[in-house]
């Protein structure tokens, strides 16, 4: 049996005219331009900041716009929290501790660990390391974690694992303790905010 040839009749493809080609390029350009504007808007909004200064403590910093500022606590000089975040509210705080002439940053971190282990559930501190801040001061950094539970029992929430980082700098007989706290699930993403905070911090 002879093989049957299969012939497909296909219409000739029309070549796009110059107007059509330009129109398609222009349309794609409009969308890409819109996306670039959107990225610019996003950067402007996510990096927008508010200036804060405390003459008494000698601290000035720019903190993320829209975060709630609190100064009414003996444990810290200033604290800012992102109240728009679901679950654990991302927190940055700056505290000042008077220290003796022979005290080191390691001593301050040890003291903080002892204090927190009595108040925070399953508090664990990790190893510490030296750090150079953007303002060229040297300090000591320590990461830690604990579990936080919603204070309102009616919300029936599951405890959240919170990751934190302390940076301690000894200066003029006092220890400046900069603390960053965030839900461990979003810690790495939120860390960029803390880095911007550190870059603007002066004391």
């Amino acid at each position: 049996m002879s093989e049957m040839a299969r012939i497909e009749i296909v219409g000739e493809r029309e070549a796009a005219s110059r107007v059509q080609r330009f129109s398609h390029y222009f349309t794609i350009s409009v969308c890409i331009g819109a996306l670039l504007i959107a990225l610019n808007m996003r950067t402007q909004f996510t990096t927008a900041s508010t200036f804060y200064t405390n003459v008494q403590a000698g601290i000035s910093v720019r903190y993320p716009q829209g975060w709630l500022l609190n100064e009414d606590d003996a444990d810290y000089v200033m604290r800012v929290r992102d109240l728009t975040r679901m679950g654990y509210k991302t927190t940055i705080q700056v505290g000042i501790e008077p220290v003796g002439s022979g005290a080191s940053a390691q001593n301050v971190l040890a003291l903080l660990s002892i204090r927190r282990s009595t108040t925070l559930a399953t508090y664990r501190s990790l190893s510490s390391e030296a750090i150079v801040l953007p303002n060229e001061l040297t300090g000591l950094r320590q990461r830690f974690y604990f579990t936080a539970t919603e204070t309102d029992p009616f919300l029936e929430s599951i405890p959240v694992v919170v990751s934190g980082e302390d940076i301690v700098v000894i200066q003029r007989g006092q220890a400046v303790v900069i603390t960053f706290l965030a839900d461990s699930a979003t810690f790495d993403v939120e860390y960029a905010v803390f880095q911007r905070f550190l870059a603007n911090l002066e004391f």
């Binding site: 005219s17 107007v19 059509q20 129109s23 398609h24 222009f26 349309t27 350009s29 409009v30 969308c31």
Partner: peptide
């Protein structure tokens, strides 16, 4: 319109906008 009356290259981007 670009297929059947391709008179202007602005119409498609305008509809996109």
């Amino acid at each position: 319109q670009l297929r059947f009356s391709p008179t202007s290259f602005v119409l498609l981007p305008f509809t996109m906008l």
